[in-house]
């Protein structure tokens, strides 16, 4: 048969138009593999923590969370004081940091003269750039002496009758830890709140101003309520930071396995316990107990962070708000 080429039969594609592009699948493969490194790392990290924490979990069960005994000699471990100390120091930090951070965010978005906004925002960002260990150094040699001389005596005079301010103040204490943490998390809360407030539609503000509200009233009654979930998210991101912060806290909190109500007394946090004791842990069970502490810390911070992000996303959907600050 001879093949008479007809109009309906298209000629085969010449070589010049044929597929010869091997680069695309290769490129996609490489960057996908690199991206998969992240979940893989996280998986390995969690698995390692869990596997190594197993012996302590088996031995102490849920009692690990509630027992206050931490006795390496008797090989009895309970993490209640550190969990308590972690939560209290972080909450204390929030109490101090939230008004400051919101002040920064509101001032910079609503009231500050335009030319001051960038420099002030930069200074606040710099607070986040100061290494943790430098905060610790400053806490030991500047903050604690200051507290001892100027801040604690009037505090005790005014509030000494409450259980929160009882006992002798030696320096290293929950209070010192909380203040240092507060200074450290202000930039995170401020940065994210600022972005949240900026993401509030201008119409909200203008509507309030149009009704004759003063600028403050517009902020208070229109902007902040609209951004509330996002601001709560920002605060929780700060909380997540505070919970996991290690060095500065370790250096000023006193590192004592104790549960006390007074913020003037030393305390302990989970991160500090790991930092102090991990390389000294001589027995397998001791090490395993520290792994369990690490696992608890990890689970709490992940939960707080995940919740925080959900809240921030509700205000500024999809935008990668706060990813720069975090």
């Amino acid at each position: 048969m001879t093949s008479a080429t007809t109009e309906s039969v298209a000629p085969p594609a010449p070589a010049s138009l044929r597929r010869r592009n091997r680069g695309d699948p290769l490129y996609r493969g490489v960057v996908t593999a690199l991206a998969l490194a992240l979940p893989l790392l996280l998986l390995v990290l969690v698995a390692e923590l869990a596997v190594n924490a197993r012996p302590a979990m088996r031995r102490f069960g849920w009692g690990f969370l509630t027992s206050s005994t931490w006795d390496p000699v008797a090989e009895v471990y309970g993490a209640a004081p550190m969990i308590f100390g972690t939560l209290v120091s972080s909450l204390l930090a929030l109490v101090i940091a939230v008004p400051l951070a919101l002040g920064v965010a509101i001032f910079l978005t609503e009231f500050a003269p335009r030319w001051t906004r960038k420099p002030v925002a930069f200074l606040v960002e710099l607070l986040a750039a100061v290494p943790s260990v430098v905060y610790g150094l400053w806490g030991i040699f500047v903050l604690i002496p200051f507290l001892r001389t100027y801040a604690v005596p009037p505090l005790k005079a005014a509030l000494g009758w409450t259980p929160l301010f009882q006992g002798v103040f030696y320096g290293n204490s929950m209070l010192a830890g909380g203040i240092i943490l507060a200074i450290m998390i202000v930039p995170y809360i401020a940065a994210v709140s600022r972005e949240v407030i900026l993401a509030v539609p201008a119409s909200q503000r203008e509507a309030a101003l149009g009704l004759g509200a003063t600028r403050w009233e517009a902020v208070w009654s229109a902007v902040l309520p609209y951004g509330r979930p996002g601001i709560i998210g920002a605060v929780m991101l700060g909380l997540g930071r505070a919970l996991g912060e290690t060095m500065a806290v370790t250096m000023v909190i006193g590192n004592r396995h104790d549960i006390g109500l007074s913020v003037l007394q030393p305390g302990y946090t989970m991160a500090a316990a790991i930092a102090n004791e991990f390389s000294e842990a001589t027995t397998d069970l001791y090490l395993s107990a520290l792994f369990e502490v690490g696992l608890i810390l990890f689970v709490i911070t992940v939960a707080v962070n995940a919740l925080a992000r959900l809240l921030v996303w509700r205000v500024a959907r999809g935008a990668a708000i706060g990813s720069k600050a975090l």
Binding site: E48, N305, R309
Partner: peptide, 16 residues
């Protein structure tokens, strides 16, 4: 996962 890891305490990464 990246966001979760960003919030992971650095001391935990040290253990890892």
């Amino acid at each position: 996962v990246a966001d979760v890891m960003n919030g992971t305490p650095s001391i935990v990464v040290g253990i890892f």
